[in-house]
Design a binder for these strands. Structure first.
Lengths: 165, 165
DNA sequence: AATATACAGTCAACGTTATTGACTATCAAA
DNA sequence: TTTGATAGTCAATAACGTTGACTGTATATT
């Protein structure tokens, strides 16, 4: 009766993923809130964080791809992020249909705060399980992501946005 | 310029987690929809899947713990799941405050379908990265989850439900 | 026993986020 | 220069989660 394996070998992977992600989410949100950035919508973290890495201005379409939400949802998300002064839009001179988005001053600062919080978790994680395990985890997760992409193509986009996540 | 590492070593962990989870979510949803179970709310997957493992009837409070949502949200979730005939409520004879929930016939069938889809992904994952990497991933994710729990206690529940996830 | 406190869950109102459907504007190609 | 595809917006609605106030049941203290 005591012969139980460690809990994390019993639990189902999706649930494990869910809770693991929430650790990051909670830490980043707390750090942001403490720095006064307490009005960022859910997916805003991904937008801000992503833009901080990409550096430049990306078109809405790219957000749609990365977040896998409808373009209307993406537009709305950007709207509120613009209204709250994290993002700004600019016309793309190459193609006037496109409106690229980029971080404002405030947005960059929020991104930095967020990155710091994330890196703190990352660092703590290294001390807990070691870089080797983390690398393995990344490989494993990447394989999962790939499988998702493949299926999506296979099924020729018959997969609604909200079906995901 | 071509000296780039594999993409999954560049990407930030929360995003990787997000997409990895969506692979499971999409596969399970597709399988369920094909079997006629296309009316399951988002968190319903966790409720149904979780109940299928626990077997028995659990009280609402346990759902709240596991999903980390407000009790009202949990109640509402159960409401719709009951309305759609996946779940049923029963009074707990021990403590008449408690209403335990358990799977209906339909619910069990949905759970089976879902589990099958999940296991298919699991199996494919083994062939892709091997059991060793998966074990490492589990250890790593578990460490993350633990960190989340610890922080939560540290901060004495000052952490709203929606802050998570 | 009597009262106070804690716990399990519901009801109602509201806010946020995502969805669908219809539309405008721009570009690309025949 | 019409045709078709692409980028994004507007408006209405649906799904989900939150807060606050409430009922009923159990538990502990006097």
């Amino acid at each position: 009766m005591d012969k139980t394996k460690p809990w994390f070998e019993e639990i189902v992977l999706p649930a494990l993923l869910r809770h693991a992600r929430s650790t990051y989410g909670a830490a980043m949100r707390r750090a942001l809130a403490e720095a006064g950035y307490d009005d960022i919508p859910k997916n805003g973290l991904y937008v801000i964080g992503g833009l901080a890495m990409d550096g430049g201005g990306i078109p809405l379409g790219q957000l749609i791809e990365e977040l896998r939400i409808s373009k209307q949802a993406a537009g709305q998300l950007v709207d509120t992020l613009v209204a709250r002064d994290y993002l700004e839009r600019a016309a793309d001179p190459e193609d006037r249909r496109k409106l690229t988005i980029s971080l404002t001053e405030r947005g960059r600062d929020a991104a930095a705060t967020q990155a710091e919080a994330r890196e703190k978790i990352d660092a703590e994680l290294v001390t807990r399980v070691g870089q080797e395990n983390i690398n393995s985890a990344r490989r494993t997760l990447a394989a999962l992501v790939d499988m998702g992409f493949e299926r999506e193509r296979q099924n020729d986009k018959t997969l609604g946005p909200q079906t995901l996540a």
